[in-house]
């Protein structure tokens, strides 16, 4: 598998699907076409970079259903919804569910290409971020149980003295654990540590902000 991004096109109208493929080809983008949501899901590989151009209304499985399936995956290409007449409410729902763009048929070629380019950038960004998350997760794995407890307390914004009292250990031991955590996570400052942890656990954001 190459690491070049691919534009995945899912539309059950042969002509439209092939026309979009041709358009991608004309600007030098690699494109792959699928005539149904199932066909795409069968070939889905989270590791392949790219974006998904998805017709919202199709037989058997609609674009929305496919989108729902994909959101269960940790990583999937950003979705551009294309809609026919009268499908705007569906497109809006798709956008709420995380689609990056929606374009009404018949569309302007430039508008679609712009959307595709934006989506590809986003994919790249997402893939970079995912890589970082994976690294942080890797590092977090390396922490001992005690070190993780100390990390929790640090993230909760507590001072060393309070941590020592809470955990029933000496303040110097807390300091030693703390240094070990910073070292294992490869964080040079407390703020960097915070950013890393938030990357993996976005729900910790509120607590951190209070600090």
């Amino acid at each position: 598998m190459s690491n070049d991004p691919t534009v995945f096109i899912v539309d059950d109208d042969d002509e439209v699907r092939e026309a979009i493929g041709l358009l991608m080809d004309s600007v030098g983008l690699a494109a792959e076409t699928f005539d149904s949501a199932w066909a795409y899901l069968n070939c889905f590989d989270p590791k392949r970079p790219g974006c998904l151009v998805l017709d919202v209304r199709m037989r058997h499985m609609s674009g929305l259903e496919l989108q729902e399936r994909l959101t269960e995956e940790p990583l999937h290409p950003p979705i551009i919804i294309i809609t026919g007449h009268g499908d705007v409410p569906m497109a809006v729902r798709a956008v709420k569910n995380g689609a990056v763009d929606f374009i009404e048929k018949p569309f302007n070629d430039q508008a679609l290409l712009d959307a595709v380019h934006r989506a590809l950038e986003l994919d790249q960004e997402q893939r970079g971020k995912a890589l970082e998350v994976a690294q942080v997760q890797d590092r977090l794995e390396r922490l001992t149980k005690r070190e993780r407890e100390v990390l929790e307390q640090i993230l909760a914004g507590k001072r060393n003295k309070v941590i020592a009292a809470d955990l029933g250990i000496s303040q110097s031991t807390v300091e030693a654990h703390r240094a070990k955590v910073m070292e294992k996570l490869e964080a040079r400052s407390l703020s960097e540590l915070m950013r890393m942890v938030l990357l993996v656990y976005p729900d910790r954001a509120t607590n951190a902000a209070e600090n």
């Binding site: 002509e15 439209v16 358009l23 004309s26 007449h85 018949p106």
Partner: peptide, 29 residues
């Protein structure tokens, strides 16, 4: 709405194909 769609499909295919063709000619490909 169904009929508009029925018209939309070929129109979309037409315009997209034409644009793609123009781009390819522009790019001398």
């Amino acid at each position: 709405s169904g009929i508009a769609h029925e018209l939309n499909q070929p129109l979309t295919a037409i315009s997209t194909n034409a644009r793609a063709c123009v781009r390819m000619i522009d790019a001398e490909r």
